[in-house]
């Protein structure tokens, strides 16, 4: 029915949905970056820098080659950044993304926008993922620089300007982005499925932490295992402790992580479409 007033807002289309998701992501990104959550995530991202700052100040130069140190750094990214601090950061940023707004009684504003709820969630996931990935990528690149620092300017310059250094740094950033996107989607889905997502989050956390000790079949249940397929120094990464296993191929890792993302997205879409907001009472 129309009486000639005509809606001011544009008619639904795929292009509009993409524009809406981008607009929501942009608006949310500003909001996320200024939130207390961002401060907590930044703190988590800063913690992995501590050993490298100490090593840069008190380390003994010349004990290991730059190449050996970078292999150690790759272990560090896998063990400390991905499976500990980034995992916790994603849990913090994504698990309560919807529930927090229900508690604050503000989610209805998002649901009253003429946008599919899935599009709203995609925009919000993208904003949080961009914020978390930016914060952790920055700290990881900084840690990489600190790891190289004791080897002196000529070695570092040669490695980064004439060697594989920049590609390795880009590789670490890519892994961080992929990890954030995947864990973000998983924790967003858990946050929508479970009344208390912390329990499920801790289960994921423990499983990821214990990954080196797990047999290959169980390693494959962890996201970080598949992420090692993209680590730039993966061929040289060997298990320090636990049960050693060859890293997955990048193709297999891409397929599995893509499937995890798709399943999480479907769960979020299914759950958010059925979500009812009754907090306003009656």
């Amino acid at each position: 029915m129309s009486d000639g007033r005509g809606p001011l807002l544009p008619a639904p289309s795929l292009r509009l949905r993409l524009a809406q998701a981008a607009a929501i992501a942009r608006l949310e990104l500003r909001h996320v970056l200024l939130s207390r959550r961002a401060a907590s995530v930044s703190l988590l991202a800063a913690l992995p820098l501590v050993p490298w700052v100490l090593a840069a100040i008190y380390g003994t130069p010349g004990r290991a080659s730059l190449g050996e140190d970078l292999v150690g750094f790759s272990h560090f990214v896998d063990g400390a950044v991905l499976r500990l601090f980034l995992l916790l950061g994603c849990m913090l940023a994504f698990a309560g993304l919807v529930r927090r707004e229900i508690e604050n009684r503000t989610l209805h504003y998002a649901f009253l926008i003429p946008v599919r709820r899935e599009v709203t969630m995609a925009g919000r996931w993208a904003a949080s993922a961009a914020a978390v990935a930016t914060i952790f990528s920055s700290s990881t690149v900084l840690a990489l620089a600190l790891a190289c620092l004791p080897h002196g300017r000529p070695a570092v310059t040669a490695h980064f300007l004439h060697g594989p250094g920049l590609a390795q740094a880009a590789g670490f950033v890519a892994v961080i982005v992929l990890a954030t996107a995947t864990w973000g989607a998983v924790f967003l889905a858990l946050g929508l499925l479970a009344r208390r997502p912390v329990g499920w989050g801790l289960l994921v956390f423990v499983l990821e932490l214990l990954r080196p000790m797990l047999p290959l079949a169980l390693k494959r249940l962890t996201i970080s295992w598949w992420l090692t397929g993209f680590l730039p120094l993966r061929s040289q990464v060997k298990a320090v402790v636990g049960i050693p296993a060859p890293p997955p191929s990048p193709l297999a890792a891409a397929i599995v992580l893509g499937a995890v993302l798709a399943v999480a997205a479907l769960v979020v879409a299914w759950r958010v479409r059925r979500l009812e907001l009754a907090y306003s009472g009656g």
């Binding site: 807002l9 639904p12 604050n104 209805h108 009253l112 003429p114 946008v115 599919r116 907090y279 306003s280």
Partner: peptide, 21 residues
Amino acid sequence: QPERLMRRLGYCTQVDAFPAG
């Protein structure tokens, strides 16, 4: 169908809460 309906519907709830800041 919020995508279609909310283009033509406005709802002012009685919830007295707003996005922070």
